[in-house]
Amino acid sequence: MIVDPVTLIVALITISTPVLLAALGELVVEKSGVLNLGVEGMMIMGAVCGFVTANEVHGYATLHEIVWLDRLAPTLAFLAGMAGAAVLSLIFAFLTQFLMSNQVATGLALTLFGLGLAALIGVGYEGQPIPEVAKPLPAALREIPVVGPILFSHDFVTYLAIFAVFAIWYVLRHTRIGLVLRAVGESHDAAHALGYKVVRIRVVAILFGGAMAGLGGAFLSVVYVENWVQGMTAGAGWIALALVVFAAWKPGRVLFGAWLFGGIAALQLRLQAAEVGVPVALLDASPYLVTIIVLVVMSSNRARAALNAPAALGKTFHASG
């Protein structure tokens, strides 16, 4: 057998984590009525900030032989990744919410800016050492056959991402904060007339989306690849954007879409290694193709998908008396 199903499932869950985190963040942003196309740029900022932090803290801790600091390095790296991407998203928030710039153009610019800035920050860090990220659950659990690797072998951030699916679903569906957020995304004029702070709510949502994309990027560089490579997100941010739309703004479907994408990505790597007779380029492209085809089919009922779409998505809000 060329592919072992257990390792495949473990790999797909790991591979899908960055996309899942970024897509969940973008889902919240879009539910508030803002379209931020800068996910790719925010992810790569998270990746570079996370990696640089991990490397620097590791270097300092090794030099001064501070063991606890070395252990703390990955956590600091994740926080730095979130912060870096959130700062980048703050630029987007300022431009679109206060200077009323066009969200599509600003988002695209944010991606280009993020890619360039990340490349600049990351000069000289390629191939530098970072500390290994410890697994949160005890080794004994991991050694249970089949169930152990699938359920208990993951990183803390992966568990956090799956928890976030349920948390975001619950908050959007059942809490007042979620209701107000959806209301702002549905009709900013009506929300404003009722006295809700449209701009403030949207800025917070944009920052949240930035932090989630940054965490995804940091996971990619610090945990999954364990290296910094220029342009390493390779379109993951765009996949996250597409997932949100095709998942009809439902967190559960975002999880499904992310796993589907991760599954095909993990599978095609194994097929490449097994040297099956399919061109490598086609295998490389397959996760993107399959994810989009499946999600298009899932959301083929246009009227129902539109029902869940935030009605004010991408529209600029001018507060008027």
Partner: peptide, 20 residues
């Protein structure tokens, strides 16, 4: 009560009322 309704079409009646 507004001239142009300040309601959210994709939300339920109860959710709309809770928002106000």
């Amino acid at each position: 009560v507004f001239q142009h309704f300040s309601l959210f079409e994709a939300l339920t009646v109860a959710e709309n009322i809770a928002l106000g």
